[in-house]
Structures are given as C-alpha cells and as structure tokens.
Amino acid sequence: MAKKRKSNIKVGITCKCQDAAVARPPSMLRKVQCKKCGVFFRTNRVKDGPDLCFNCRTGK
C-alpha cells in the first residue's frame, strides 16, 4: 500500500494578537416573531412593515 503524505498546508491560521483591520459595523438584521404563525426569524425590513415570515408572505 502507498503511504499517505502529510500536508504542509495550513489553512485558516491567523495570529490572535493582531486586531482586525476594519471594525465590523453592527448587524442590520433584527430578530422578530411572525404575527401569523409565531416563528422567530431575522429580517432587515423596516419596522413599519408587516412582520411576516417568508412562508406566510408567499402563502405556502
């Protein structure tokens, strides 16, 4: 049988002592509850609109 070679590639390793280059903006998503079926979901729609989940909006 052939021997498996050990990979020298290191993926996703970063130094933890450095800060991120750019600060992340706060999330625009808000957590709401569907007024029709009661499921919790995240949306970026304006607060004045109806808070309906995708299934209730499309009539599924």
Rank of each mutant, 00 (worst) to 15 (best):
K36M: 10
K4A: 15
C37H: 01
D19H: 10
N8M: 07
G38Q: 04
I9Y: 07
R5Q: 14
D51I: 06
G12L: 02
S27D: 11
R30D: 00
T14W: 02
K31L: 13
C34D: 14
G12V: 06
I13P: 00
Q33Y: 01
P50C: 00
K3Q: 13
R5N: 11
A2E: 08
S7P: 03
Q18E: 06
G59D: 12
P50H: 06
F40D: 09
A20S: 14
C17S: 15
D51A: 13
R45Y: 03
C34Q: 14
D19M: 10
I9L: 15
P25Q: 05
M28I: 14
S27C: 14
C53Y: 06
T58W: 00
I9P: 00
M1A: 15
V32K: 01
V39I: 11
C37R: 06
R45G: 06
L29H: 12
K16H: 09
R45W: 01
K6C: 04
Q18G: 01
Q33I: 15
M28A: 12
Q18T: 08
P25N: 03
P25I: 00
C53R: 12
P26W: 04
A23V: 14
F40Y: 10
R42W: 09
C34K: 15
N8Q: 05
K35I: 12
M1C: 13
V46I: 01
R42T: 11
K10T: 09
V39R: 03
R24N: 05
R24C: 09
I13W: 12
V39F: 04
K60F: 11
K16E: 12
G12K: 08
S7N: 12
G12P: 05
G59M: 14
G59A: 15
F40R: 08
V46Y: 00
N8H: 14
P50Q: 07
K10Q: 07
N44Q: 09
N55H: 06
V46G: 07
V32D: 00
M1W: 10
I9T: 15
G12T: 10
R24T: 13
